[in-house]
Amino acid sequence: MEKKIERIVLCIKPVKTDLLFQNSNADGEAFSMNPYELKALENLIKLKRNGEERFCLTCICMGDKKAKSILRRALSMGADEGILISDSIFAGSDTVATTYILQKAVEKLGNVKMIVCGVKTIDGETGQVPLGLCERLGFPFLVNGNEILKVKDTSVIYKYRNEKETKIMESKLPAVMKYRDFKMDLPIISLAAIKKGKKKEILLFDSKNMEIDPKRCGIKGSKTKVIEIKNKYNKKEKRKLEGNIQEMVEIIINLLGEGEEKKEGDFG
């Protein structure tokens, strides 16, 4: 009997697009993939396309219905399965509650040989989810994965990288990997890939079908609470310089002069 293909689960955090790009297009999606997970996704898809690697790439996203577009994109890029974890009682979940929900999702999926999470999310920046998942699932923790090179039946070969060194490691599976390489630019997807992605189903996992204890998720199940998230970019005044070089130099001198005046005034 042929062995059932095992899953590699990639946990993708939807992050607000305007946190990623200063001048995000108004037409664009409100949410984008966390850059670490985007890079991991490309890495895993490349392994699948190269041939020998046999695994089912399952992308899971936790969030409201808007997060569905992230999964749709992942499926278009080449992921095999998309799971949307969504329920009103999950709102406000911190890393403790989130890892509990993700644990339940992984258990419901079954047949999981590896879980990959970005090193951190660019909004929360806690980096606690992969560690929490290891703890809950009892899987070994693979830190600083920079590139997955080969997925074998019972082990994974990957590039380990920290501030000082890069080395090739082989670790036993199952495991949870904290992936540290990242990518900002979205790859271009062909029209055919979009169509192909559309044909793949996105499954909804909610509190009922995952048999979640309501007391252990959402604000009730959380130890911390996010009060506010701010965009770190400050809009600056822009001005286009026109005229010949001499005229533009004069404009710049005047602008610098204005700056000086303001500076003096500030210290007034």
């Binding site: 037409d27 749709r72 994109r73 278009s76 979205l186 271009i188 997807i189 029209l191 979009i194 559309k198």
Partner: peptide
């Protein structure tokens, strides 16, 4: 539709880059 929007987004990205 969502799919049409995705097509638009990708053709714009594709054309601008290539």
């Amino acid at each position: 539709s969502q799919e049409q929007k995705e097509y638009r987004k990708e053709i714009i990205n594709f054309a601008k880059e290539n």
